[in-house]
């Protein structure tokens, strides 16, 4: 091969690579645009006047940004005592998500640690059962769990604690709480939504067990020789080791629970108690369907921002967690 032929051959490869790369960029941008444009359309819609909503050609950037839409949306839906509903819904979600997170982190790490590190008869059978429950459709148990919840008496202690906590929460958040009588059962309370989180879920247990298996056994043997109890080993050795995995679980649980509307739809009857996802869906029933899209989009933006920001900040943990559990679509 002569030098010129070699150069020509090399140039050909380079040109093909460049073409390939350009094509890939174009595809990435096209696909990316399809993913992101609806979200931008939502934000843009939330800042328009009512007349700008349906103009042709579509207007992507409003003439003047109508921040007032957020104010109107924020105050238009009312609680039973007349206060604005949206802040309360937002608070409800934060509160629910927090309790669920505590429950998920505590219970799943305990069970995962047990399966990974402690020997016992019957362990393998139990683990097999755990894996099988991952396959069960949750609809199997909705109806009977609902009936069980409707039969469980509401614990007086819970009621006393929550009544005592209301003034403090009110002081901290500025959200109004009305005083209610003690509920007779668990329906229309937060217990069906929070208590099950304290009983560990198969997917997360599996993920944590897999991780705990990778912790070197020398660590807990050394601790045991030093006289540490099992609880101590779990708390002071395994939990700190598992920080990255716990971060993944936290992020996934947060994002997953922020959007949760089905459980609340089943169990809550009083709209004051709705979390924001169900609250926005409820708001949709109030807004005049064909005209008030700007208010609905504002509600959608408020609902979307927290999970979106958490995703952007902790993307690595989110992706890791999704890869490890695969619990999302």
């Amino acid at each position: 091969m002569s030098t010129t032929a070699k150069t020509a051959w090399y140039e050909g490869i380079k040109a093909r690579n460049l073409l390939h790369k350009t094509l890939m960029y174009v595809l990435c941008i096209l696909v990316g645009a399809f993913q992101i444009l609806p979200l931008i359309w939502m934000v843009s819609g939330s800042l328009k006047t009512i007349d700008e909503l349906f103009v042709d050609p579509p207007m992507w950037i409003p003439k003047s940004w109508q921040w007032v839409n957020y104010d109107v949306m924020w105050n238009s839906l009312r609680l039973q005592d007349g206060g604005p509903a949206m802040p309360r819904y937002l608070f409800n979600t934060v509160y629910l998500t927090f309790i669920v997170l505590v429950g998920v982190l505590l219970s799943n790490t305990m069970v995962g640690f047990g399966f990974a590190r402690l020997r016992a008869r019957g362990k393998n059978v139990l683990f097999l059962i755990l894996l099988t429950t991952m396959m069960l459709p949750s609809q199997m148990t909705w109806l009977s769990v609902y009936i069980i919840m409707s039969r469980l008496p509401y614990p007086k202690l819970f009621y006393d604690i929550s009544e005592a906590g209301k003034p403090i929460l009110q002081g901290l958040t500025g959200v109004q709480f009305s005083v209610e009588g003690m509920p007779t059962n668990w329906i229309d309370t937060y217990l069906p939504l929070t208590v099950p989180a304290f009983f560990a879920g198969a997917g997360t247990v599996f993920l944590l067990r897999q991780f705990f298996l990778t912790v070197p056994i020398e660590l807990d043997e050394a601790a045991r020789i030093d006289g540490a109890s099992t609880l101590r080993i779990y708390w002071s050795i395994f939990l700190p080791q598992a920080k990255p995995v716990l971060a993944s679980v936290t992020i996934l649980t947060f994002i997953g629970h922020w959007k949760e509307f089905f459980g609340p739809l089943l169990y809550l009857n009083t709209s004051d108690k709705y979390p924001i996802a169900l609250g926005v869906q409820y708001f949709r029933g109030f807004a005049d369907y064909n005209t008030q899209w700007h208010l609905l989009m504002a509600a959608g933006v408020v609902l979307s921002i927290p999970p979106f920001v958490v995703f952007l900040l902790f993307q690595r943990y989110f992706v890791q967690g999704m890869a490890l559990t695969g619990i999302k679509g």
Partner: peptide
């Protein structure tokens, strides 16, 4: 990040914007 973002948006919110579209 762009490819994932629809996944983290609550379905109630994305249903709103898609219903409008």
């Amino acid at each position: 990040a762009v490819f994932y973002s629809p996944t983290v948006i609550p379905s109630v919110a994305s249903a709103l914007v898609w219903t409008w579209i």
